[in-house]
């Protein structure tokens, strides 16, 4: 059985990480856009009201103000739902924040279809693609609440823009304080030599469950938690591909331009093996409850198993 240490939404990892960081580092400043409580910014805002500003429903302004705070020497963390954190102010992020390599951290909450009943408008499914194409940007997609907390705190050590993608819904906790975490380094979670399953975010848990099912069928899967999408850990990915000879990628995100594409870019250069991708197949999301939507959009462990069976035939 996959060891599950509890269940909590990753957004609380962001909130708690920011609080802890705020205690240690007096330069940390937070910005919200009328969604402060739902993206767990209120934890920091209540502790450090003098280091928090709510700009209202004005995400473009939020990124501009965050940029200015960075210019003035602060370490701003600006957060809201991913669609409005990455999408709405994209060009401010590109030209003001990334081009000047400003020290702005962006929290993109409410990622994926697990946002649920709010539907397509609020389900962020494109941020990995539109954030990872930006020079100077670091992109992290933690797999659970504990890892989100670490990512939030570690991001402050990078002198430049960082995007952290997290979610609204409760998801299994599969890492502990002791689990190694280093930005830019992928973690191999299970040893296996038949297929490598590269996953990020919520799909890491699904990949672990899939690996168990595969084991009972005599297929050894190497599950790799690629929490940092940029800069991506080329070595771990290429080694796994070479040793296993086939790769499945899994992401709660659009199939085009996202995590699977990032892995494929590494593989075509270093270890061109057959790849199957699990993700959102170029469609918009829908209203529904999170568990049903994961099934509907074929993002479950069983879908990963099917992708593995398919990729093994191409080996």
């Amino acid at each position: 059985m996959v060891e599950v240490l509890g269940k909590k939404a990753t957004r609380f990892g962001f909130g708690e990480g920011l609080l802890e960081l705020g205690k240690k580092n007096p330069k940390v400043f937070a910005l919200g856009a009328d969604t402060a409580a739902s993206v767990a910014l209120n934890i920091f805002a209540e502790a450090f009201p003098e280091r928090f500003v709510n700009v209202g429903v004005a995400e473009q302004n939020m990124m501009g103000v965050a940029a200015g705070l960075a210019v003035a020497g602060w370490i701003p963390y600006a957060a809201t739902y991913g669609v409005f954190a990455a999408g709405r102010p994209w060009e401010q992020i590109r030209t003001t924040i990334c081009y000047s390599n400003l020290n702005v951290k962006i929290g993109g909450s409410h990622s994926g279809v697990m946002v649920g009943p709010d539907g397509a408008t609020h389900q962020a499914l494109e941020e990995i693609a539109i954030m990872r194409c930006l020079p100077n940007m670091t992109v992290i997609v933690p797999c659970d609440m504990v890892e989100t907390k670490k990512a939030t705190m570690e991001a402050s050590r990078i002198d430049g823009p960082v995007y952290i993608r997290y979610g609204r819904e409760s998801v299994p906790i599969i890492t502990s304080e002791k689990t190694p975490f280093k930005i830019g380094r992928a973690e191999v979670l299970t040893e296996g030599k038949d297929v490598a399953i590269m996953a990020c975010g919520t799909m890491v848990y699904e990949a672990l469950v899939a690996a168990e099912a595969l084991e009972s069928k005599g297929i050894g899967a190497r599950v790799v938690n690629v929490h940092t999408i940029k800069p991506i850990d080329e070595k771990t990915i290429a080694d796994a591909a070479r040793e296993c000879g086939a790769v499945v990628t899994a992401e709660e995100h659009q199939i085009h331009g996202g995590f699977g594409s990032a892995v494929a870019e590494v593989l075509v250069k270093n270890a061109p093996v057959p790849v199957e991708m699990v993700g959102i197949m170029d469609v918009f999301g829908e209203s529904g409850n999170p568990a049903d939507l994961m099934k509907h959009f074929k993002l479950k462990d069983t879908d990963i198993v099917r992708a593995v069976e398919k990729v093994l035939k191409r080996k």
Binding site: V83, G119, A120, T121, E286, S287, G288, N289, H296
Partner: peptide, 24 residues
């Protein structure tokens, strides 16, 4: 799931009277 009455108005669901998708 599958409803024409999405959490925010959805043009692609063809509910009569919805001119355009909104919610952002």
């Amino acid at each position: 799931p599958g409803s024409r009455l999405q959490g925010h108005p959805a043009k692609d669901k063809n509910l009569p009277g919805i001119e355009v998708s909104t919610g952002s």
